[in-house]
Simulated scan of single mutants.
Amino acid sequence: MKKVISGLILALSLGLFNNSHASAEPLVKSKEDVRPIEVVANGEFIKMDVHPLMDNNLLFVPIRALASLGLSYSFNPTTRVATVQNKDGEYLKISANSKTAYKNGKAIKMDIPAQNSNGRILVPIRFVSESLGYNVQFESIRKFVFVNSKDYSFDSKILYQDDLQAARKAAIALPINTDFKTLSTLNGYRLHEYTFPSGRADIYFFNDGIYTFVQVKDGKAIAIGQLYRERRVPSQAAGNVSPEMSLDTDPIMEAYDHRSVIFFENNDSTAGAGYQDDKNKRVDLKTKMNVYSDIIQKLPDHR
Rank of each mutant, 00 (worst) to 15 (best):
T287A: 14
A114S: 13
N240K: 15
P234W: 10
S246E: 04
N76V: 12
L191D: 09
I252P: 05
D49R: 02
Y152Q: 06
I121W: 00
N187L: 08
E25G: 03
V4A: 03
L92P: 03
P300M: 06
Y275D: 07
K87S: 14
F45C: 03
K29Q: 04
D163M: 04
Y134K: 09
K2A: 07
H21I: 14
I121Y: 03
Q226L: 12
T287F: 02
F264N: 09
R232Y: 08
I121Q: 04
N18K: 08
S235V: 08
R64H: 01
Y275P: 09
N57H: 14
T195Y: 04
I125K: 05
A171K: 00
P251S: 03
Y189K: 12
Y275A: 10
N267D: 15
N56W: 08
H51S: 13
G219M: 07
P36C: 12
D248T: 04
I172M: 09
G188V: 00
Q215K: 07
I203R: 07
H302S: 08
A101Y: 10
F144Y: 05
N97W: 11
R120K: 06
E32T: 04
F146D: 10
K93A: 05
A171N: 04
P234N: 06
F213S: 01
T78L: 06
F264A: 04
F154D: 09
K169D: 00
L71P: 15
V291E: 10
N267G: 15
F127Y: 12
V34G: 01
D179K: 14
A173D: 00
L164E: 00
L227N: 08
V4F: 02
G133E: 15
D33C: 03
T79S: 14
S149F: 08
K281P: 02
Y73A: 12
N42V: 00
P77W: 10
L227D: 05
K47N: 11
V241E: 02
F206K: 03
G133S: 13
R229F: 03
L16H: 11
S246C: 02
K157W: 01
I63C: 05
M110K: 00
Q161T: 12
F206Y: 15
I46P: 01
D162G: 02
R190L: 11
D268R: 02
K31L: 15
K47I: 01
T182H: 10
Y134F: 13
I262Y: 05
N19F: 11
N148G: 13
N19R: 15
F17R: 05
R35S: 12
P113R: 00
L164C: 06
S98P: 00
A167K: 00
A41I: 06
F196I: 01
Y194Q: 10
F45G: 07
D277T: 03
L132N: 09
L299A: 15
T212M: 02
L122A: 01
N290A: 14
M48P: 13
D257H: 11
A114L: 04
K3S: 07
I222K: 12
N42P: 07
T195R: 01
A82C: 14
P113W: 00
E32Q: 09
D202M: 08
L159E: 01
V136Q: 06
T100W: 08
Q161P: 02
V145S: 04
I252W: 00
F144M: 07
K279Y: 05
L247Q: 08
S23K: 05
